[in-house]
Nucleic acid binder design. Structure first.
Length: 300
DNA sequence: AAAAGCCCCTGGACGC
DNA sequence: TGCGTCCAGGGGCTTT
């Protein structure tokens, strides 16, 4: 489900619920997700207060008042469903139902694996049918050196993803651009949708070698500048729209993301190219066992 | 060292 | 209606 824009959307939705909240009770419905839960997971969480909610790549980072960080990865199908106690809603109900599975009774439904109970009675439930997601507990001071984090590359939000930074990363790479961008060590947070969308915006073929983004001396080409700009723009636009709606994806507050209608190429095989004046037809092909969508006419 | 394959898991869409 | 096949937003691990 979630690429960077979806995780960032969830982070923003959850922040007002979690920041400053105390975790009074943690329920596990099973012993593992993709990996076993950490040792003494429940004991280390219960009683802690959340100091901040942040994000790195596709990881959600819940910082706790004892220096631990609860790291949450949603995998392909993970969702965080929030039930806020006694909060008024637009519809005037008491309590807010968020997400399609959780009911207000608090009973676990299928694929609810973790429930965080907050002091005020609110709940945050992790639901994940495929269980490709996972949770870790890492000391804040050890996070940057952690095996899952130390290799992570450029963040598309903020200032660090520039044409020259991207060119440096791509210099000498023989992998195609699709695979290059899917690799979290180069640019962090992109997934199958936004890679296709960014390459479309930059008018670059997903089949092109990544190394061609850099000039012979390693400086950024026009292509590198265009791609860096396109990645930033597509991610910013998607975050502004609240992420994509894919199948059953909803934001943490239950509204569907609005970005799906803005997909120019993703899942549009056979449809006419969205670029004004282009006569191409969107093509699908498989790269690295994943579908890539692109216009063979205007993406070079 | 980099790149390519395989695998984990469940559910939905589709064809017959 | 039921069954088989294919496909899906991720990334770690192993093999070339």
């Amino acid at each position: 489900m979630p690429e960077l824009p979806e995780v960032e959307t969830i982070r923003r939705s959850l922040e007002p619920v979690l920041r400053g909240a105390r975790l009074v009770k943690v329920e596990l419905a099973r012993a593992d997700l993709r990996f076993p839960f950490p040792e003494r997971f429940v004991e280390r969480l219960e009683g802690r207060r959340v100091t901040a909610l942040s994000r790195r790549a596709k990881y959600l980072l819940v910082r706790l008042d004892n220096g631990d960080v609860l790291v949450i990865h949603l995998g392909m199908s993970g969702r965080l469903v929030v039930a806020v106690r006694n909060a008024p809603t637009a519809g005037g109900r008491r309590g807010r139902l968020v997400g399609s599975y959780t009911n207000m009774t608090g009973r676990l439904v299928q694929h609810d694996h973790v429930v965080l109970h907050l002091e005020d009675g609110s709940r945050v439930t992790y639901n994940d049918p495929r269980r490709f997601g996972f949770m870790l507990l890492v000391k804040d001071s050890e996070l940057a050196a952690h095996p899952l984090f130390r290799h992570l590359g450029l963040e598309p939000l903020g200032e660090e993803l520039t044409g020259s930074a991207l060119a440096r990363e791509a210099h000498g790479r023989r992998a195609d651009l699709k695979s290059f961008l899917m690799n979290q060590a180069h640019v962090a947070g992109l997934g199958n949708i936004y890679v296709s969308e960014a390459l479309f915006r930059a008018r670059l073929s997903p089949l092109r070698r990544a190394g061609t983004l850099a000039l012979k001396d390693g400086r950024a080409s026009q292509r590198a500048e265009a791609l860096a700009q396109a990645i930033r723009a597509v991610v910013e636009d998607a975050v502004a729209a609240g992420g994509s709606t894919l199948r059953d994806y909803v934001q943490a507050d239950g509204r569907p993301g609005a970005f799906q209608s803005a997909h120019a190429v993703y899942d549009r095989e056979g449809k006419p190219c969205a670029r004004a004046g282009c006569t191409g037809v969107v093509r699908r092909r498989v790269q690295g066992q994943r579908s890539t969508f692109y216009c063979p006419v205007c993406q070079r």
